[in-house]
Design a binder for these strands. Structure first.
Lengths: 326, 326
DNA sequence: CTGTTAGCGCGTTCAA
DNA sequence: TTGAACGCGCTAACAG
């Protein structure tokens, strides 16, 4: 203990936390003792009295999706600036595991939790909020008024993507949709529909296939699309499924973008290096993460957050996977 | 408190932890009270006395690399099975931040930390081990005898990759290397050299370029290679840089694999969906993560780990990016 | 089988 | 400016 090298524990506590006045001499003595022993206060004991663990959690289905991974650095930056660390909990889309984790996190007294892509019923989540666990939702919605939400304007992004294809002269535009039942999937379909309707282009039922946001799903969806009446352009609900789409197109002997144009959504780091480089909708992942984290820290500190919905702007990034209709 | 609904706190503790014998009647009463109040023991208080936080940490440079992300699910599975959660700490390759995190993690009394790709001097890391913080290294080495290591046999993997290209008739085989100064980069260069030497193929200095394990790095390295005397095949130090390599090749008007074959390393999920699908060396990421986590939990529990080095087998996965020399 | 007592290592009164 | 005393919520040791 630093106590052995000086004064009482109370004084050490005050010195290290900058609480109260410390005589220069005793301050120096404490510093010396700390140096010598490599002393660091036990944060567990501190948490027990302060009621703050300086820990937040990120709860999401699957960190293997690079978009989720991109969120982490934004969270990390804000959290570290506030002296907090981040627990990562992956659920594999299993609602039981979501609930299990939420309950565990509450027991662990985390200061708050960031959730993304949960499938648990909103009322269950609201229960946790009611019990005093601050929760902020990022990227994907939850149907709950008790949880702030930070995300990109999905509908607008999808609309911009589709308009880009329309402006290139395409009329047979397919959509490889996200996982069924998710609001985010519906919104991207909505934006696609909006753009087609505004251009008075017929929207064929057979031109929407489910890609489920994965490489594998996009691949399967595109194969199905090619087996029917092939489109001249495809808007994929995210970059990962766009990868699968391009794979299926290449495998069928067609070329991107000469035969079929492809647009993705997310703008993953690797989108710039696919073959061909992927035209896509940029999501400000870093900013989404930072905003959501700040909101969560505010909530945890007992500050009110005035606005529930935080919508950020999507942006079209044109690369090599789209071209004018031949 | 559940105390209000029955007995003493000690009995509740025993009932909930399964320690000691509990009369059926009181057990039922406690269960009922727990249900009614939604009671969960405060793990912070528990940790203060048990000296275990049921928390481990993963310290790595950058979660945006999908290979690191793949490790997470293996860790998560083992950790959750042991009732532990995982703190994720990303360092951006900054040694100061590594030390800052390690110090913070010690203060937080984590049960142990898994490290990957640290650049901190081994002796600093050994200091933490000496202070009683269990550390296990996975994927990338540390030059320290006090830290167990779980990784794939990098040298062997690189050798297998190069041999594959040799067996296809290639003789002008370039290597896009990893970040300079890392043992893992040197080992993969070593395996490449071994294979060339065994086949009595000349290894040209100009056929090794630095790709630094990133898409961007691989892209730049391949452009440099193409500006010199172009190889007929390339072994990239990881899949991400292989993506950049394929990008540069396509941009130069050449085709993969007709003009140039490409082999990666890692076998990321997306490797199956690049254009063309990437031939690569499979790393058992899930197993590496599980083994390392188990080792760490053993260490944290005070069990001895007999073996310091755990080498897992790499495996060649042949897809569409390699072909026989024309 | 159960209650009482005593800490775990801190922050925080209240006096001095 | 500093120390003594108390308590955060829990588990462990010891009686009973």
């Amino acid at each position: 203990m630093a106590r052995l090298a000086g004064v009482s524990t109370a004084t050490v506590s005050r010195a290290l936390n900058g609480t109260g006045q410390i005589a220069p001499a005793t301050g120096a003595a404490i510093d010396a003792a700390v140096q010598q022993l490599g002393y660091r206060p036990n944060t567990v004991a501190r948490s027990l009295v302060t009621k703050s663990t300086q820990t937040i959690a990120l709860l999401l289905p699957d960190i293997a999706n690079p978009f989720y991974a991109a969120l982490v650095s934004g969270i990390q930056e804000r959290a570290l600036a506030a002296g907090s660390t981040m627990l990562l909990c992956t659920t594999e889309g299993d609602p039981e595991r979501e609930e299990q984790y939420l309950s565990l996190l509450r027991a662990k007294q985390v200061d708050g939790v960031l959730v993304d892509g949960l499938v648990l019923p909103p009322e269950r989540i609201a229960d946790f909020v009611r019990e005093g666990l601050p929760i902020v939702c990022l990227d994907r919605d939850i149907d709950s008024t008790s949880v702030p939400l930070v995300q990109v304007d999905n509908r607008l992004g999808a609309q911009i993507a589709t308009e880009h294809l329309l402006s290139l002269g395409h009329r047979l535009i397919a959509h490889v949709a996200g996982a069924p039942g998710l609001r985010i999937s519906a919104e991207r379909i909505g934006g696609y529909d909006d753009a087609l309707a505004a251009a008075a282009v017929e929207r064929r039922r057979t031109h929407v296939a489910v890609g489920s946001f994965t490489e594998e799903g996009g691949y399967g969806a595109m194969r199905a699309l090619l087996a029917g009446s092939p489109p001249t352009a495809v808007f994929a609900a995210n970059d990962l499924s766009a990868l699968g789409v391009m794979h299926a197109i290449a495998e069928s002997g067609r070329r991107v973008p000469e035969d079929i144009s492809v647009v993705g959504f997310d703008d993953l780091r690797l989108a710039a290096h696919t073959t061909p480089p992927l035209t896509t909708i940029h999501q400000p992942a870093f900013e989404i993460a930072q905003r959501a984290t700040q909101l969560l820290l505010d909530l945890a500190a007992g500050r009110e957050v005035p606005q529930r919905l935080h919508l950020l702007e999507p942006e079209l990034v044109v690369r090599g996977s789209t071209a004018a209709l031949a």
